[in-house]
Amino acid sequence: MSANNNSTGGIGFCGLLTIVFIVLKLMHYIDWSWWWVLSPLLIPIAIVLIIVFFIVILRVFFALKVKRTVKESGFAARIKKMERMRENMQRSKFKDNWKS
């Protein structure tokens, strides 16, 4: 039996870039701060934060749009009017039953 070891992933571009920068810094080919040398490790974190930020913005935008649409369509007002009519009908039935 052969074991299929199909693992994906690996070090990735940002990890490889970080290793290259660390080697260059330790060999004194670059005179950068360690923040800049290790900055490629922050790239995936920054991408995730940007995606989360846009998702939050889109959810807020669509939530406000839905509220605005409900107000503009008058749907909520029609529901309230129907509820008032139902209450009035129930009151009138109660009064009619009370009189008889």
Results as ranks from 00 to 15, higher is better:
R84D: 07
A76L: 14
D96C: 03
R59N: 14
F62L: 13
K81S: 04
N88G: 07
S92G: 00
R91P: 00
K95I: 07
T69W: 15
K80Q: 09
T69Y: 14
M82G: 06
K80G: 06
L64P: 00
M89N: 09
M82R: 10
F94W: 07
M85V: 02
E72V: 02
I55D: 08
K93G: 01
K93T: 04
R68S: 13
D96I: 03
K67N: 13
A77P: 00
V66G: 04
A77W: 01
E87R: 12
F94P: 00
I57Q: 13
S73M: 13
R59P: 01
A76P: 00
R91E: 08
E83D: 07
R84M: 03
V56A: 11
E72Q: 14
R84G: 00
S92F: 06
R84V: 01
M85Q: 14
L58F: 11
V66I: 15
I55Q: 13
A63S: 15
A77K: 11
S73G: 07
K93A: 11
L58H: 07
E83P: 00
A63C: 03
A76F: 05
F61Q: 12
V66Q: 14
K95G: 01
V60Q: 01
E87A: 12
K71E: 09
K93I: 03
A76V: 07
F61M: 12
R84P: 00
I79T: 01
A76R: 11
E87I: 12
S92N: 13
E87F: 05
R86F: 07
V70F: 11
F94M: 08
I55R: 05
K67Q: 14
R68L: 05
A77Y: 05
I79A: 02
R84H: 08
K95S: 08
L64I: 05
K80F: 03
V66P: 00
S92R: 15
F94N: 10
E87M: 07
V66S: 10
M82T: 11
I55V: 13
F61H: 14
A76T: 07
L58C: 09
D96P: 00
K80L: 04
M89I: 10
S73D: 12
R86C: 05
K67T: 13
R91N: 07
D96Q: 14
A76I: 06
R78V: 04
L58P: 00
R68G: 02
N88H: 05
L58D: 10
A63N: 13
V70W: 04
K80S: 09
V56W: 06
D96L: 09
M82S: 13
M85L: 12
L64C: 10
V56C: 06
A77I: 08
K81L: 05
I57D: 05
R59Y: 12
E87S: 08
S92E: 15
R86H: 11
